[in-house]
Amino acid sequence: MTVLDRLIELGITLPQPMPPVATYVPVTVVGNLVTVSGQLPAIDGKVAVTGKLGQGITLEEGQHAARLCLINVLAQLETTLPGGLASITKVVRLGGFIAATPEFSQHAVVMNGASDLTVAVFGEIGRHARSTIGVASLPLDAAVEVEGTFWLG
């Protein structure tokens, strides 16, 4: 089963990628290594989950936001790479940034929204290294931001 087949099975349609909100490119390829800049939990080009975990945003909403971010990472890959998602042979690393209050401590659980979807979409090659960091704020008041590093085969 291909990655695109798995997306269909999961009921996911990849959106048009959101353009950068500052001076950077969304995807960089160096040799076989692909890096996707941080993606926000956007739907139709608008941030769908704003605010902070621990202050109005529930754990479940945070996980949903992380999942949306990962969908936007996938959209960047599909539209940028000549072979699209089919050219990915390994998910190397995900990085997650969680806007949260100082008391919030379940950043890793929030990021599971992205990690679990990665494994569901890519299977065994989707198992990855990961960092998850709590931050005071994110661009456009997003609750979560996710970046990724991938290997081309």
Score class of each variant (00 low, 15 high):
G31R: 10
G51K: 04
P20F: 11
P15R: 10
T50D: 01
G83F: 01
V34R: 03
T118E: 00
A108C: 02
V135S: 01
V27K: 07
P19I: 02
V119A: 11
V3I: 13
F97N: 02
D5K: 11
L138H: 09
V34M: 05
V92P: 01
I71C: 03
T13D: 14
A114T: 04
A86M: 03
G11D: 08
K90I: 01
V110D: 03
M111G: 04
T2F: 15
V30Y: 03
P26M: 14
M111W: 06
A120Q: 11
V36E: 09
G95Y: 08
N72F: 03
S131H: 12
A129H: 13
T118D: 00
S105W: 13
F122Y: 13
G54P: 09
R67G: 01
W151H: 09
E103K: 15
E124K: 12
V49A: 06
C69E: 02
N32W: 09
V109Q: 11
W151Q: 10
Y24M: 09
G123L: 11
D44V: 14
G38E: 12
D5A: 15
A108E: 13
E145Q: 15
G38V: 10
A108Q: 11
C69W: 05
L70M: 14
F122V: 06
A42F: 11
L70A: 08
A65I: 10
T118P: 00
Q63G: 00
P19R: 04
H64N: 06
G51F: 04
Q16N: 01
E124R: 13
L10C: 04
V146Y: 15
V121G: 02
E145I: 14
T79A: 11
V91L: 07
T58E: 05
V73K: 00
E78V: 07
K46W: 05
N32L: 10
T149L: 04
N112I: 01
V34E: 04
V91K: 01
P17F: 07
G62A: 04
A86Q: 10
E61S: 02
P26G: 14
P139D: 09
V36R: 06
L59T: 03
G45D: 07
M1F: 15
T2L: 15
L53V: 00
A120L: 05
I88M: 03
H128L: 06
T79V: 10
K46V: 15
G148Y: 06
R127K: 12
D141G: 10
Q39F: 11
V3E: 06
R127C: 05
A42Y: 13
V92E: 08
T50M: 07
E60W: 03
G83D: 06
V144E: 14
I98G: 01
V92Y: 07
L70P: 04
A42C: 15
T28A: 14
G95I: 07
V25Q: 14
T13A: 14
G84R: 01
